[in-house]
Design a protein around this nucleic acid. Structure first.
Lengths: 140, 140
DNA sequence: TTGATTGCAAAGAATTTGCACTGGG
DNA sequence: CCCAGTGCAAATTCTTTGCAATCAA
């Protein structure tokens, strides 16, 4: 399981790595977490892991392709377990909820624009900010 | 000119503000600058403006809608004079060049997705990273 | 005049690094 | 056993703030 994912990435199997991987994978917790979020969550689960380690591990995971790093409007980085399928994000400014989506039309549009400009597209980041349906309802 | 733009924004006409506005507006310099870039550029033009002031002024400009702030993959914020017409960006990882583009198809796609999800879209950020045509040529 | 604005230095927030210690293979 | 991995504290980087001096209206 987690064990083999780490090995595949060339990383030794250690407590902090396992725990962070499990945390990111757990379905109950939000899937988009900052380093601080991960740190606090681990602390509240007994773990006496250091914040620096969280940063180091997340960075290694990112380099290994296990995790994707985002820069939502705010200041700090947000990490998300990489499930293999590309998607973009819709961030609700009211409740902070992050919704994932995929649009073939948008992907195509990007591809087209890149071609038009002789640009070799490696990756992209698209964030849509606004108010989610839940929050829209509440404000009635 | 600059003067009235500032007044319209409710900001007093001061040397730092004028200079920063002119810098951002000048066609010769890149249009996408970090606070540090602006600061260094001003220093090299005699000006003895403080870095803190650059940050303050850029933040005020952003709030006044005169300037748009971006968070390209890197760490620091990048500022750009707001010319009124929305556009997205293509960032070359090799030469650092930033190219602006606008795609009706992509904008439409975003609008569609938002509707589909009952999401009220306020704004978005789309950055495409890769290699620009110039750099592609050089690598032949 | 007078409150807005600035420069400087000091404070903050997020992230990284140095180093001695620990632990997985 | 041995080096990768870790915790802690100190260092960096980017940005914001406090405060006395300065300036535009």
């Amino acid at each position: 399981m987690k064990n083999s994912e780490l090995k595949k990435a060339g990383l030794k199997t250690t407590i902090p790595r396992i725990q962070i991987l499990e945390l990111l994978d757990s379905t109950d917790s939000p899937k988009h977490l900052s380093a601080e979020d991960v740190y606090k969550k681990l602390l509240s689960q007994d773990s006496d892991i250091g914040l620096a380690t969280v940063y180091r591990v997340l960075t290694q995971f990112e380099q290994a392709g296990l995790v994707t790093r985002h820069h939502f409007d705010g200041v700090h980085s947000i990490y998300e377990l990489n499930n293999g399928q590309h998607h973009d994000h819709m961030v609700c400014g009211d409740c902070g909820n992050v919704h994932e989506f995929y649009s073939e039309k948008i992907e195509q549009g990007q591809h087209d624009i890149a071609i038009e400009n002789g640009f070799t597209l490696k990756h992209h980041s698209l964030y849509m900010y606004g108010t989610c349906s839940e929050c829209n309802k509440k404000q009635l």
